[in-house]
């Protein structure tokens, strides 16, 4: 029996030395309350993950972004169907109220399915992954920057939509 205990200890110590047992996952959920955004006045939401205590505590120990998605209620306030889009950027020095300016500077990370006119759509957690774009870029923002601007647009002009969203990030953290 001693041999088996010894083998178990050797195996566990081996795993610990490689660092594999010293990491864990955490999930943070933060508001992206863009609100009403229109083709005449694009709305910006400044997302600062440092306001999240868990993120702030483990920021220097992030090993990997394992999953990232956006859960959102999106309301189409016009009679024309639209595809809502979410763009991100760290630079807010330009005039972001104009859709084309945002498109020229920022990076699109999300495109919704079609939202009928005068209707709303819930992007749920499981489905949201299929609507994400440029995930690597977004993961780098989460890991290395932690704060960035989030813009709400739509595929066609004019648009008038209301986006109430949350970002869901699962991180591997460890020493």
């Amino acid at each position: 029996m001693k041999n088996y205990i010894l083998m178990g200890l050797i195996a566990v110590i081996g795993l610990g030395i490689t660092g594999c047992l010293l990491t864990s996952q955490m999930t943070i959920v933060e508001d992206i309350d863009i609100g009403v955004t229109t083709s005449d006045d694009v709305s910006l939401y400044w997302l600062d993950l440092n306001a999240n205590e868990d993120y702030l505590e483990h920021k220097d120990k992030i090993k990997n972004v394992d999953a990232i998605s956006l859960v959102a209620w999106i309301y189409n306030r016009t009679s024309t169907p639209v595809y809502a889009e979410i763009w991100v950027d760290t630079d807010t020095t330009y005039d972001y109220s104009i859709p084309d300016t945002v498109r020229a500077h920022a990076t699109r990370i999300f495109v919704s399915p079609e939202i009928p006119g005068d209707d709303s759509l819930l992007i749920d957690w499981n489905d949201s992954f299929q609507y994400m774009e440029n995930v690597d870029y977004l993961e780098n923002l989460v890991m290395d920057v932690g704060a960035f601007a989030v813009y709400g647009l739509a595929s066609d002009i004019p648009f008038d939509i209301n986006i109430i969203g949350q970002i869901v990030v699962t991180l591997t953290v460890g020493n």
């Binding site: 594999c20 047992l21 990491t23 090993k63 990997n64 394992d66 591997t172 460890g174």
Partner: peptide, 11 residues
């Protein structure tokens, strides 16, 4: 105990 390393020091 199963460990699947993710390649970024995590698993």
């Amino acid at each position: 105990i199963e460990v699947a390393p993710t390649g970024e020091s995590g698993s």
